[in-house]
Nucleic acid binder design. Structure first.
Lengths: 236, 236
DNA sequence: TGTCACGATGTCACTAAGTGGCATTGCTGG
DNA sequence: CCAGCAATGCCACTTAGTGACATCGTGACA
C-alpha cells in the first residue's frame, strides 16, 4: 500500500485541480452546494430516479460541470455526509493531552451546540437522511462507508500522536479502526433516533459519556485518559 | 432501518431469482467463477481497463448474463473477497461457549491449514490481491468494505448469541463493529504481508493469539473468554 | 482602459455500464 | 417425445461519465 500497509484511497476529488486552481474554499463550497441538492433529490425521489442531469439542473450548472466535481453520482452525497461527522473530527483533532476524552467532549459539545446555525442544522438533517438512505441504497452506503473511512484515517493520526507512535503501528491502526467503528455505530443509532424523534434508552441523559466510554472500550482502555502535560510520557 | 437501527443492505445479488430458481449452489459457483476471472483481469490490467465485455468473454458468457449475476462491475470482485474471509466467519460461527477465543481459533486454524486445497489457495491469493487493489481503486475498495460489512453482521449475530442479548442491542453492535474492524485491519496487514513475503513483527510466532487479543481489546474484554457450559450465565 | 492569460464552465460527440424484452437453448418430469 | 420452465443469448435502448474544444469571466499589467 501507499506506505507500508496503510490503506490510502483518493477519496473523491478528481485528480484535484485544487492546488493551482480555483481557491480551495470556493471549490469546497460548490461541491457542498451540489451535494445539498443531490442529497435532497436522493431523499425525495430515490437515487435511481435522480439523474446527473437533474442534479445539475437543480443546482443551476451544466451536467458536465457536475461530473467535473464528482466522479460519480453516488459520490455527490459524500460532502454532506462527511460534513455531518466533521464537527466530531474537529473535536478529536483539538483534543489536548491533558484532558480526558469525556471532559474534552463535554466542553466542546456545549460550545458547538451554541454555534450551530440554521444552514448547518439543515445540512446535518440531510446527512442523517443520507445515512438512513444508506440502508436500502447500496450506492449511498458506499458514500457513508467512505466517510467513515476518512474518520478512521483521522482517528489513526490522532491516536498515533497521542500515543507517540507512528501511524503505521499496528496497535494504533487497530485502535483507530475499533474506535471509529464505535463512532459509526453511535452515529447510525443517533441518526435513526433523530429521525424517529425518540432517544434510545442507552443515551438517556448523556450521549457524550456514552461515546467516550464506547471509544475507551473499543481501544481496550488505551484511548480516553488524560495524559500528563509534558508530551513525553505516552503510557502504552 | 429495516428493523430498528440495524443497517441492512441487500449486498449484491439482484432481486434474487434464487428462491425458486437455479439451485443456490450452482448460482453461487457461477458467481464465483465470474468473480475469479474478473479479479484476475482487475489485477492484471486494472479496473478501468477491464470492461464487462472482457469479463464475459474471459469466463465464456454473454455480457448480458454477467449483468444478470452482478449489479455492477466492481461487485464482480465481491464473491472472491467475501470467500477470502469466509473461513474466518466459519470459525466464529462454530465457536462453542465453553472455549476461549484463543483456544478455539488455535484448533480450527490447524484443521483449516490441512484442508485447504489448491483452488482455495489460488482464490485466497486473488482475494488478497483485491484487498490490496482496494488501496488505489475506489471501486474495489467498495467491494472490500461491503465484505467487511457482512462480517460485521455475522459478528453481531455471534456476539448477541454469546451474550444472550438481542442483535439490536447497542452494546452488541458496538462490540461487533469494533471487533470486525480489528479483524479487517489484521486482514489488510496480513494481506500486504503475504504479498511482500514478509511477516510483520507483531505477528511473529502467533497470529492467532494476536487476533484473539485484538478482538478481546476491541470489545473491552467482553468477547474472548470461555463461558461456563450452562447457557444461562453471560457475564456482561 | 484595453488586452492578455488563465481557469472555470458550457457544448457536443463519444464510450461503456447497465436494463428491458423477446427468442433460443437446455434440462426435467411425465 | 413433448410440455414447461429456468438460464442464457441477442439486440435495442437509456444513462453515467469522459475528451476535446469553444466560450466566458476575472484579474494582472502596460
Amino acid at each position: 500500500m501507499s506506505h507500508d500497509g496503510v490503506i490510502q484511497v483518493q477519496v473523491d476529488t478528481l485528480p484535484s485541480p485544487g492546488a493551482a486552481g480555483m481557491s480551495e474554499r470556493r471549490r469546497h463550497r460548490l461541491r457542498l452546494e451540489i451535494s445539498r441538492e443531490a442529497s435532497r433529490l436522493f431523499w425525495e425521489h430515490g437515487v435511481a430516479a435522480t439523474s446527473g442531469d437533474r442534479i445539475a439542473r437543480a443546482v443551476g450548472l451544466s451536467t458536465r460541470t457536475v461530473w467535473r466535481h464528482f466522479r460519480s453520482k453516488e459520490s455527490c452525497a459524500e460532502p454532506i455526509v462527511t460534513q455531518g461527522v466533521e464537527w466530531e473530527m474537529r473535536m478529536l483533532r483539538s483534543w489536548p493531552r491533558h484532558l480526558s476524552l469525556e471532559d474534552h467532549l463535554a466542553t466542546e459539545a456545549t460550545g458547538y451546540a451554541r454555534a450551530a446555525d440554521a444552514v448547518e442544522q439543515a445540512d446535518t438533517l440531510l446527512a442523517i437522511r443520507m445515512i438512513r438512505l444508506a440502508d436500502h441504497e447500496p450506492a449511498i452506503r458506499t458514500a457513508w462507508l467512505m466517510a467513515c473511512d476518512q474518520v478512521e484515517r483521522e482517528m489513526t493520526a490522532i491516536i498515533a500522536k497521542r500515543l507517540g507512535l507512528p501511524a503505521t503501528d499496528l496497535d494504533v491502526r487497530l485502535h483507530a479502526a475499533a474506535a471509529s467503528a464505535a463512532f459509526r455505530v453511535v452515529n447510525e443509532e443517533l441518526g435513526t433516533a433523530a429521525l424517529r424523534g425518540t432517544i434510545p434508552p442507552e443515551f438517556e441523559g448523556d450521549v457524550i459519556r456514552y461515546v467516550a466510554r464506547a471509544i475507551r472500550d473499543a481501544t481496550g482502555g488505551t484511548i480516553g485518559d488524560a495524559l500528563t502535560p509534558p508530551p513525553t510520557t505516552p503510557h502504552h
